[in-house]
């Protein structure tokens, strides 16, 4: 069995050099979108950004959820969680309903608004690299080791080790371990995560469960509804028939009299 890969981003080690940003652009053959990478934002041509919050830096990218919301809401299964852990997208299937963009708890997917036949764009965890055992382009380019790539299980152990060893250095939370059911991207920081612009208070359960609870009821609603309506039809029809018969009987009685 293939081991799931992942990314560990330790913002306390990040110096905001932007090597990850450039490497991502190069890897995905994306055009330049901003002369100052710190002022750039996620777009159809930018899959990862480095944001400056005071003297701290924070990377934003797809979190590659274990149970991806985008994949669960997509009516045509255009998203897929690969065995390596990446959440990838197939434009050939996509109908362009943009429910993935509306539903993503991290608000990551971006759209090619200027195209006539637009695609959804986002980080794909360098699927074609990690499937060959190579690290993602961003982690390979990182000069400080703030972004590292490896087996997800090892990264989880490493993240926990860093938290327990540097209890005064770190805010004691691994962002991405439980958020929306967790995923393949883990983030460490020295301050609470909302201060770095990460979505706070995400539920621990995977988001797709919120809809599945209702979707599961559909067969019941359909059967019970069908039976109920069928019997109501029969009952009310019978009731009307009886009413009419009584009316006629009354009429006849009156005639006889």
């Amino acid at each position: 069995m293939v081991k799931q890969k992942g990314i560990l981003y330790d913002s306390t080690m990040c110096v905001g050099c932007g090597e990850c940003y450039s490497a991502c652009k190069k890897q995905n053959k994306l055009p330049e979108t901003n002369s100052d990478f710190l002022k750039d934002h996620l777009s159809a041509n930018t899959y990862t950004v480095v944001e400056q919050h005071g003297d701290l830096y924070a990377r934003k990218m797809c979190m590659h959820c274990a149970e991806p919301t985008c994949a669960s809401v997509c009516p045509v299964k255009a998203f897929e969680k690969t065995k390596e852990g990446a959440v990838i997208y197939d434009a050939e299937k996509c109908i362009g309903c943009r429910y993935c963009m509306q539903a993503c708890p991290h608000q990551i997917p971006r759209y090619e608004w200027s195209q006539v036949s637009p695609r959804v764009r986002k980080c794909v965890l360098c699927q074609n690299r990690i499937s060959k055992g190579l690290p993602t382009a961003c982690s390979e380019a990182c000069p400080t080791g703030a972004t590292i790539c490896g087996d997800l299980d090892d990264l989880k152990i490493e993240a926990k080790k860093r938290l327990s060893e540097g209890s005064d250095k770190y805010y004691q939370h691994i962002y991405g371990l439980d958020e929306a059911g967790g995923g393949s991207v883990l983030i460490l920081a020295s301050v609470p995560f909302e201060k770095l612009g990460y979505t706070p208070n995400l539920p621990k359960q995977p988001m797709p469960q919120l809809t599945n609870r209702v979707m599961e009821k559909i067969p019941t609603v359909a059967t019970v509804g069908g039976l109920f309506l069928g019997s109501m039809y029969w009952l009310t029809k019978r009731k009307n028939e009886i009413a009419r018969e009584e009316k006629e009987a009354k009429f006849k009685r009156n005639e006889v009299k």
Binding site: S72, V73, V76, K93, P208
Partner: peptide, 14 residues
Amino acid sequence: HPLVMWNLHSVMFE
């Protein structure tokens, strides 16, 4: 596409 590419978990599909 939804006619042939099914995702039973998707409300949009339903």
